[in-house]
Simulated assay, not measured.
Amino acid sequence: MPSSRIPSAWIVAAALAAAVTPGCGPPQSVTNAPEHYDMGSLDEVADLYNSAYNAKKKPPASIKDFVRGDLFVGGMNAIKKGEVVVYWGVTPTPGEPTQEILAYKADVPEKGGYVLLKDLTTKAMTADEFKAAPKPSGPTSADTAKPEAKKS
């Protein structure tokens, strides 16, 4: 009498095929969603800021102090275009949780959105939370970009 058992190799193959079938499983994150761009540009600004601080042993005072702009083009472009506003002269404190703002998307004061904190983490804030959050007193990239905009 022939066996009605299915070889275990067939079961494993069927399970693997089912696991990789497109369209099955939980929905995947959309990589081009606006919040991914917002967080990505702020993450790159964090990398730019921290690498400049580590290389020069002092916080950047302008975009010219960023030493690895070629590696973090998205962050550099976001600052140059005014999409991200950065506070200059702030010592980053990775690993030391804080609510002090280091950089933010330009429309956050009016609409809310993502900010980069001094500890180099990103966080979503409402416009009211942003207004209440501690901020450095020094100049920002928006302050230093104004004279350059007038020159062009």
Rank of each mutant, 00 (worst) to 15 (best):
A149E: 13
P22M: 12
S51T: 10
N32Q: 03
Y87Q: 03
S51H: 11
K118E: 15
L117H: 11
Y53D: 01
F66E: 02
K64E: 14
T122D: 09
A142R: 07
G112Q: 07
A55S: 13
L71F: 11
D70A: 07
S62D: 06
W88P: 00
T91L: 01
P92R: 12
P60Y: 01
P147N: 10
K80N: 10
P27R: 05
Y37N: 08
Y53T: 06
N32G: 02
K80T: 13
D128C: 02
A17R: 07
A78R: 13
A132G: 00
A17N: 10
P134N: 01
D38G: 11
I79G: 06
V115A: 09
G113R: 04
T21A: 14
P97F: 09
S29Y: 00
R5W: 13
G74V: 10
P147M: 03
G40W: 07
W88M: 01
K151W: 05
T126N: 08
E110I: 01
N32P: 00
I11P: 00
A19L: 14
L71C: 03
D119H: 09
T121Q: 14
T122P: 06
A33H: 13
Y87D: 01
L48I: 08
L117P: 07
P94K: 04
L71S: 08
L71N: 09
M1W: 10
Q28C: 00
K81H: 13
T122Y: 05
G40T: 08
V30Y: 04
V12G: 01
A18R: 03
E35P: 01
K146H: 02
M125Q: 13
V73Q: 12
G89E: 00
N50Q: 11
I79F: 06
T126M: 03
A124G: 10
L120F: 05
K80A: 15
K150H: 08
M125V: 15
T98V: 02
T144R: 08
I11W: 08
N50E: 10
K80F: 03
P22C: 11
P26N: 04
L16N: 03
A52V: 07
D38H: 13
S152R: 13
